[in-house]
Amino acid sequence: MTESSSPLPHAKFRCRGVNVHYGMAQAIKDNDIDIYDKSVTSFIGPSGCGKSTFLRCLNRMNDTIDICRVTGDIRLDGVDIYDTEIDPVQLRARVGMVFQKPNPFPKSIFDNVAYGPRIHGLASNRADLDALVESSLRSAGLWDEVKDRLSSAGTGLSGGQQQRLCIARAIATQPEVLLMDEPCSALDPIATEIVEELITNLGETYCVVIVTHSMQQANRISERTAFFHLGELVEYETTHDIFNTPKDERTIGYVSGRFG
């Protein structure tokens, strides 16, 4: 950590010696990484390199896979999230997630966004809930498009709108961290552009971690980039450095398009 000019940002996640096994196969090998608050961090790397697996360690989504075993130390604001005291359900309220394929619930747009606040009891009355839904949809840049049809099905929206609905849904829970697992891979370029702009804006308030296949995307939206290869965190630097002055042979090969 040698940034000179900007003040050292707060490390939201501090991960040390993280290993992930699927049964006998090791998916993540002894990774150390600090993820900073109020910024966008990208995970890049070829398919099967473990970037999504690592992302899912951060909100313990891997718990839902029977054969998956996570070891090592992952601290959110200094607290070990794999501690037995920690309730993964509560953790996931703090660490929201957006998935690769838009997956709105087969309910109305309003109910989609209101679901998180409802189960966590974030709104004491209907007016609060309405306000929260509106602000979440506004943050996701979807409000103007859907304000007249909040009661129609969320699944009836276009792909890009659905993904923004999922982002709004994640925001409505008022998380501290937003994990995004290739959020634009199922979207067309125009929708991608809108969502990317949205992610950039979100980076100003949240700690955003995004897994992406597109190096251009990582370059456009993130401040820091981590390059994973075969379960190993090869290089983690500012995005500028990763793409312009990569140090590791494998990073050079990947960002220059020689493999991956």
């Binding site: 996931r92 309220a93 997630m97 619930f105 999922c166 994640a170």
Partner: peptide, 18 residues
């Protein structure tokens, strides 16, 4: 039921029962 629906709910902090 598509697993994506379960992921979405779990990702929002819903419990298994919810």
């Amino acid at each position: 039921v598509p697993p994506s629906i379960r992921s979405a709910a779990l990702g929002l902090g819903a419990s298994k029962v919810q």
